[in-house]
Design a protein around this nucleic acid. Structure first.
Length: 289
DNA sequence: GCGTCCAGGTCTACC
DNA sequence: GGTAGACCTGGACGC
């Protein structure tokens, strides 16, 4: 069946899908020829779907018929991953007189694609640390294919914390190829499955970004970069989430290709206040489309 | 085909 | 609080 969802006026499907690398990480699958994003919804059973842009709405093509509760859940999940409820007015106002950055508002960039749970984004973020993008994809694909529930058409859901907690550390090292991250995954999944750690509330908590970042860094494998990257996915852009790729792009664009310390990068974006993390990301990914 | 080197972010021990 | 070394993998490179 097909489900149609109206999009906000300042929403841009293509810019959001390609906002960062998440569309390449399972269960997301991006088809650039047909401009389709595939994913799997966690309803009372895993259900695969293809998402298309259809004028001012999104068309969600799902396998079989769904009841109204399942349709509501899909609408909620779609709003969440595409950031329909994010208010970017302040961000666009800030940039409207910036000669080199005004394109961001014109192209409606700035919505960063995310998963349907904080847990999934957290695990994927740890998979991006200290390795090549190809290894990130290998680790995420292995997690999904070896632990995820299967849909009727053979697609797979991202595994739950409970499913991950059932596996021993060696599984993550030998099967997922996560190397030294193996004990981190095991410990994180154990803590969440036992109810000792609650990460879903990170999306709605009122605590300061500084305190939230501190809480995130209590998770093994989460350092400054990972915490700030996850914060961006939660809608908090105070941190730049500098990694080697972002630093390299800054050196090329603003420092004649020469390396500089992080303090100089921080200083460059300081005037953008709470939006600085989103400004640097949009600026460095301008040519992705 | 095999061995070596490198990039990558975080943790831990140490100062 | 700051710093050095270890962690582990895939890929690039030389032989």
């Amino acid at each position: 069946m097909n489900i149609f969802i109206e999009t906000p006026p300042d929403f841009e499907f293509k810019r959001t899908v390609l906002s960062h690398g998440w569309c390449e990480l399972r269960p997301f699958e991006f088809d650039p020829e047909n401009w389709t994003l595939s994913m799997v919804f966690n309803l009372n059973r895993p259900v695969s779907a293809k998402i298309y842009e259809d004028e001012n709405q999104l068309k969600i093509e799902v396998d079989g018929d769904l009841n109204s509760a399942a349709v509501s859940q899909i609408k909620e999940d779609v709003a969440r991953i595409f950031r329909f409820n994010d208010d970017l007015d302040g961000f666009y106002q800030l940039l409207k007189n910036e000669k080199d950055l005004s394109w961001i508002a014109r192209q409606k960039a700035g919505r960063l694609l995310r998963s349907t749970t904080v847990f999934e984004d957290l695990i994927k973020t740890i998979c991006t640390t200290n390795c090549s993008w190809s290894l990130t994809k290998i680790m995420v694909t292995n997690l999904v294919e070896k632990l995820g529930q299967t849909t009727t058409d053979g697609k797979m859901l991202f595994p739950s914390a409970e499913a991950m907690a059932e596996m021993p550390e060696e599984f993550y090292r030998n099967e997922i190829r996560s190397g030294y991250r193996a004990p981190y995954f095991k410990e994180l999944a154990d803590h969440i499955a036992r109810g000792q750690l609650e990460v879903e509330h990170w999306l709605t908590t009122d605590i300061s970004t500084k305190d939230l970042k501190k809480e995130m860094k209590q998770v093994k494998g989460v350092g400054d970069y990972a915490a700030e990257n996850l914060l961006k996915l939660l809608g908090r852009y105070d941190g730049l989430a500098l990694d080697s790729w972002l630093r390299g792009r800054f050196y090329q664009k603003h420092n004649d290709g020469n390396p500089c310390d992080d303090q100089k990068i921080q200083l460059h974006y300081e005037r953008f206040g709470k939006w600085r993390g989103l400004v640097i990301w949009c600026e460095m990914t301008e040519k992705w489309m």
